[in-house]
Simulated scan of single mutants.
Amino acid sequence: MSRIVTLVLVDPAGTPLGALPSYEVPEPWWQQVGAIVDGARHRHGADVAVLRLLTADRPEPPGGRLTYLAEVAAPPAVPLAPVPVDLAPHPLRAPWAEPGGPARSLAWATAELDRRGRPVTAVTQHRTWNLSAIWRLDGPDGSAWLKQVPGFFRHEAAVLRWLATAAPDLVPTLIAADDTGRVLIEHVAGEDRYAADPAERSAIAAAHHAVQLRATGDTGRLVAAGVPDLRGPALARWIRDRLAPHDTSVVADLLAGLDDRLDRVRDCGLPDTLVHGDLHPGNVRGDGRRATFIDWGDAFVGHPAFDVLRLTETIDEPTAGVLLDAWAARWRADAPGSDPRRAVDLLRPVAALRMAAVYAMFLAGIEPSEHPYHLGDVPACLKQAAALA
């Protein structure tokens, strides 16, 4: 599967210039823009910065025919087709999705590296969508990554600062951060471990347990630093608030009994801790010698079972059972008298319900043209929660 992309170009002032001829890129995932940038350069001699998605011919990713807005310093030699485009401002538009936005973020990152004696010689745009913009900055002293996120993910920098002390060998090195959602981190060798086998998932779970155990004594500090507090009743309120605009009839009973269910979870005796929030193997990067936990924007303070449920949700039940048994044994040893497996059983539908609320939060915080990225996720997660309740 691939994409057919059309780039509508604007200059740095936001003046529309027209559209490049459409071309095909091999990456099907809409937010991946590296091949789009390469295609514009090699096919049309245009050095572009992709700003945002404008339209798609299908309701959700991947693949299809898509139109993006892109910024270019000067019009390319190839003729541009006049196209109608709505460039009206939107209050929920990401700062990197506006003309001049990428240049401002890259100027900040380049200055931070220059101050450290690390000149930048090449910049590559990798991703842009409603949840993040990502660039790689290369130089003679190595590579760094610039990531910029919306307001609901800005606590990632606070998490990385805490982890730099608590578990420095398990997380990327934070070089710099500001208060606009920008973080600059060191390159991490290896590849994202989407295809991790059961043995590797087991190692991931064991390493993450050490982080969570360390965090049990620092939850107050993490919350004070801005990490969302989703402990007990706060989680129930947070879920209900975000799902209020959506049709939740399929989980009406689960929502009605949520406070009672979370009380029973509390009685299982496990401590609250730092939760990664999206601990699938793709958010672990490894090279065979070291595993690094990445993408902490979904992190919150809450129950540790949410992470092991995410880690085991895409594997068969017997394999997941082995990993859950090992996870439960670790917590029984570190929290004597606790009942981790009961907590997992009680939280299984809540985990799906929480993900529905997360996607609802995304939809409430992004402009409508970006909704196709997530529109189907809320009902899908609600249906899953109902099936597990």
Rank of each mutant, 00 (worst) to 15 (best):
H42C: 13
H42A: 11
R43Q: 15
R43Y: 09
H44W: 10
H44G: 00
H44L: 01
H44S: 00
G45M: 10
A46V: 10
A46Q: 02
A46R: 01
D47P: 03
D47M: 09
D47F: 10
D47W: 11
V48P: 00
V48E: 06
A49Y: 05
A49H: 11
V50L: 11
V50E: 07
L51S: 04
L51Y: 03
L51V: 01
L51T: 02
L53W: 06
L53P: 02
L54K: 01
L54M: 13
T55V: 11
T55P: 06
A56C: 07
A56I: 04
D57H: 07
R58S: 15
E60R: 13
E60L: 12
P61H: 03
P61E: 05
P62S: 15
G63R: 02
G64L: 11
G64V: 09
G64Q: 09
G64K: 08
R65T: 15
R65I: 08
R65W: 08
L66N: 00
L66R: 05
L66D: 03
T67C: 12
T67P: 06
T67G: 12
Y68M: 12
Y68E: 07
L69P: 00
A70R: 01
A70L: 06
A70E: 09
E71N: 08
E71T: 05
E71S: 00
E71F: 01
A73N: 01
A73H: 12
A73G: 12
A73Q: 14
A74T: 14
P75K: 10
P75H: 07
P76F: 08
P76T: 04
P76E: 03
A77V: 15
A77S: 15
A77Y: 14
V78M: 04
V78S: 03
P79D: 09
P79E: 09
P79H: 05
L80G: 08
A81D: 01
P82K: 07
P82W: 05
V83R: 12
V83M: 15
V83A: 12
V83K: 09
V83H: 04
V83G: 08
P84S: 15
P84Y: 11
P84V: 13
V85Y: 08
D86E: 15
D86K: 14
L87N: 14
L87M: 10
A88R: 15
P89T: 02
P89A: 15
P89K: 05
H90C: 01
H90L: 06
P91A: 01
P91D: 03
P91V: 04
P91I: 02
L92R: 11
R93G: 11
R93F: 10
R93A: 14
R93P: 07
A94P: 07
A94I: 11
W96H: 07
W96G: 03
A97N: 03
E98G: 02
P99Q: 15
P99F: 07
G100V: 06
G101A: 06
G101T: 06
G101Y: 04
P102Y: 01
A103S: 12
R104T: 01
R104W: 04
R104S: 04
S105K: 06
S105G: 14
S105Y: 09
L106S: 02
L106E: 04
L106K: 06
L106D: 02
A107L: 13
A107P: 08
W108V: 06
W108R: 00
W108K: 05
T110V: 14
T110M: 09
T110D: 05
E112A: 13
D114G: 12
D114T: 10
D114R: 13
